[in-house]
Design a protein around this nucleic acid. Structure first.
Lengths: 260, 260
DNA sequence: GCGATAGTAGACCAGTTAGGCCAGTTAAGC
DNA sequence: GCTTAACTGGCCTAACTGGTCTACTATCGC
């Protein structure tokens, strides 16, 4: 240990060549930057070690680190401790998992004003397919609800929902005009929706929905069929949502099991 | 490592730096944890070997073992000496998120015969938006691939994919006609696709795609934009898939965080 | 001459990497 | 049932890396 001791001498070997009048650390900075720009150091790749770089650029490590620090500040490179300096790939971080969001929530998170018109509203016996989807007895009482929803006054979707009333007592008396259905389920019936099975497809608008969405018949619409489940995995609601094709897109993250 | 040498100073090939400022072992820890949570590593299943995992996560085995140790401490996985690491079954059962399936796999699981025609195939510099989606430098070399795919002879979709060649060396020489892209990634480049961010919308078919899919212009098509990620959360592929509206629907389960 | 600024050389630390070796497990072949 | 070959996690070492610090030396302006 302590073999170092620094002997005198040393001093100034520098100033070799780069007589540009620049300070040493700016010369190093420019040398590195142009090499990054020229792709000598490819994006995402690791720079040579500081010690090696310092020798090659004929500056000391401390000076080199000034240049590196400046490059890092300006976002050209990033440091990974004990691993090296990396040329920063133009990475865009995004965290968009597939989360279930109500229309109201979605609108709010985008800063838009949602509005809802109830087109029809009735309690009636469930059809056979509805009963199957909701896992209730055929002809049980359900609440059928049709709504048109808009964002900032633009008509965006028509929504037909069928709610299993036996599982959400009180829902037939709630005001659904501009509340989130999810919130109403929670407050009125104490039921939390946590999962939705969704299937979407593209169709051509029929005359009726075209009229409702200010489209021409035949214009493309996105049709989503959904079944929504409570925390106990009990189906609560099934329905169909028809979106204007040019006003909505459906987003999700899919995962793939790893192979071994 | 060896005695450094290197000297070429050209960008070292390996290691896309995740310049997150995190230590390497915490990055590895988070990558594993989210993949476990997302069902990429199914509960009860065995993780890939340490050596394989280390290369896929782009860290060394020692660092990986730190991450594994922490996951084990927290009870997410357990070690079985000389056998492997196993994902602990979760205390609370929940449905796995939507699963990513290749066209080939989907066809097989439905008992249909898939076929593929390669419409075009070229390596070229990436456009700006492609570079952004793939987090590579603009004008990096990418492999652009257009395919038409059919099920039992029925033309179902047209697929435009752009692959970051820098992350999948060798893909430009692979035969993509009737292999699953996922399988080819794995075998040729050792890259596993585990996540895909998907956005679908409805559109009217333009003349060209209508022709390719035996549709009339204006017929509804389902357009999916996707970005696919490797185990290390590095984007590998981006692209657009156009489905016949009447031949495909997109399915997913959405989740909603439970409220207290 | 004095102090401030910029630079050099080196040492030490903890985190990281590549690699090798070992004993145990697994599956295939015979 | 036995052998063998391929893997596996567990353990270890040597080398390297950025981060930080100390000691010292030039050079310039005052």
């Amino acid at each position: 240990m302590t073999t170092d001791k620094v002997r005198g001498m040393s001093g100034t070997p520098m100033n070799a060549g780069r007589g540009t009048g620049h300070r040493a650390h700016t010369s190093a900075y420019h040398a590195l930057l142009t090499n990054i720009r020229n792709g000598v150091f490819a994006p995402g790749s690791r720079l040579p070690g500081e010690r090696q770089l310092a020798t090659q650029l004929e500056v000391s490590r401390a000076t080199l680190r000034q240049a590196l620090g400046r490059l890092a500040e300006e976002g050209h490179i990033t440091a990974a401790a004990q691993r090296g300096w990396f040329v920063r790939p133009p990475r865009v971080v995004s965290e968009p998992p597939s989360q279930l969001q109500s229309f109201t929530e979605m609108a709010e998170s985008r800063g838009l004003t949602p509005s809802t018109e109830v087109l029809s509203y009735e309690t009636r016996p469930a059809t056979f397919t509805e009963a199957e989807k909701l896992a209730i007895a055929p002809a049980s009482t359900v609440l059928a609800l049709a709504r048109r929803r808009s964002l900032d006054g633009v008509r965006v979707l028509v929504d037909h929902s069928v709610i299993a009333l036996s599982r959400t007592p009180g829902m037939d008396e709630a005001d659904l005009t501009d509340r989130s259905l999810y919130a109403t389920f929670q407050e009125v019936a104490g039921v939390q929706i946590v999962r939705s099975d969704y299937a979407v497809r593209a169709e051509a608008a029929d005359a009726e929905t075209a009229d409702l969405l200010d489209l021409a018949p035949g214009d493309p619409v996105l049709v989503g069929e959904q079944v929504e489940y409570s925390l106990a995995e009990v189906p609560i609601l099934c329905g169909q949502v028809v979106y204007r094709g040019d006003a909505y897109r459906f987003q999700a993250s899919l995962f793939r099991p790893a192979e071994t």
